[in-house]
Simulated assay, not measured.
Amino acid sequence: MMTTFKGFISKYREKFSLPSPWDSIVIFLLNILLTIPVFIIAHQNFINPHWKFPIDRILLFIIILVAFQLILRVLKTIIIICIFGYLLILLCGTIFGEYSFYRVYDDYRSMMYTMEENPYPQDIIVSKLLPFPNKSKVLRAIDFDNPKVRNFALSATTKHFADIKKMKGYGYYRTTIQCFAVFKEIKTRWNYVNDPKGNDYIASASESLQHFSGDCDDHAILMAAGVKAVGGVPRLIHTDEHIYPEMLIGSQKDLDNVIFLIKKVLFTEESKNKEIHYHIDERGQIWLNLDYTAYYPGGKFMSEEILGELTLN
């Protein structure tokens, strides 16, 4: 009985293994294909110290590579099953839209680009801040559901970056690209005008659309309303003498892809040789600067001191 079982195992091992040296070649290729997506996931979830030279990420890649090499060497007698399992996982990801072949490539490309562009400035904004000034009045002014505001935001998305949203690989960030279209339209048309002396006038977003003029809080209100109108999540940051808007980007993985979009696709000239500026809140979410002083999303902060924030969920 035991002899028969051993013979059965030996028979099927031969069927699911490859002859030398093909087994070593296939193991190496499969190792690379497994290491890359696992490395991307690890990079996105491990704390990034933003060193000038990313030695921590190089060591991480080597550790994952060696680990998979050892595992695959042990499993080399069933290497064909391993190949089939890998292809099946990626095929399911492609069909159900979770993690397709192209997303692996796209995430890897964006990650490598941002590692080369490292470091990027960041601050952690905690929730224990001062009350936001004129909060209820500002919230009423952000009338994103006003037809004028909604129609303006929609027109901006058809005027800017309309073709890019249709390109392969960018559909996942369609809302972000549309928010950037709103940013570009407002940035192109905004005219800074002070409030009447001694009067802190707060214009609604729909009112500001008439002349695209006003001070920093009027701009921030209009930008927040436009971003909100196309499905983005904006917030306002209050400093000592300034208010500016930010929009939610998401996680570290999203930041990598968005930085690639800004610097290589959407705002190549405006952001050339410049850094991307953002904040990280206490939950680890990343917010990108959309101030009127910035020529591209993530431009330099006008004021670093943060006193309060107002988020529109």
Rank of each mutant, 00 (worst) to 15 (best):
V138M: 06
Y244G: 02
F68E: 12
L129A: 13
H277N: 14
S206R: 01
T175N: 03
I64N: 07
L307K: 15
D195S: 14
K52R: 04
L60T: 05
S100L: 01
S17W: 09
H242R: 08
V104T: 12
K228E: 02
K228V: 08
E14S: 03
I83F: 02
V74H: 11
N289M: 09
I276F: 09
G232M: 10
G299F: 13
Y201Q: 11
N289E: 13
K159D: 00
L209G: 06
L222R: 00
D107W: 12
E207N: 01
K11G: 10
R13E: 08
L236Q: 11
F8R: 01
F16K: 05
L222Q: 12
M1F: 10
L222E: 07
D291P: 01
L59A: 15
L29S: 10
D106W: 15
I125Y: 14
L33E: 07
N194Q: 12
G308T: 07
T311V: 07
E309V: 02
T293F: 03
N199A: 02
N48R: 11
L248F: 13
D240C: 11
I25E: 11
G231H: 11
G169V: 09
A220M: 08
K263P: 06
F132C: 14
I78M: 04
G232N: 08
R150T: 09
D23Q: 05
L72G: 05
V38I: 05
I142H: 09
P196L: 14
R140H: 06
V230R: 09
V149Q: 08
I36V: 04
V38H: 06
A225S: 12
Y173H: 06
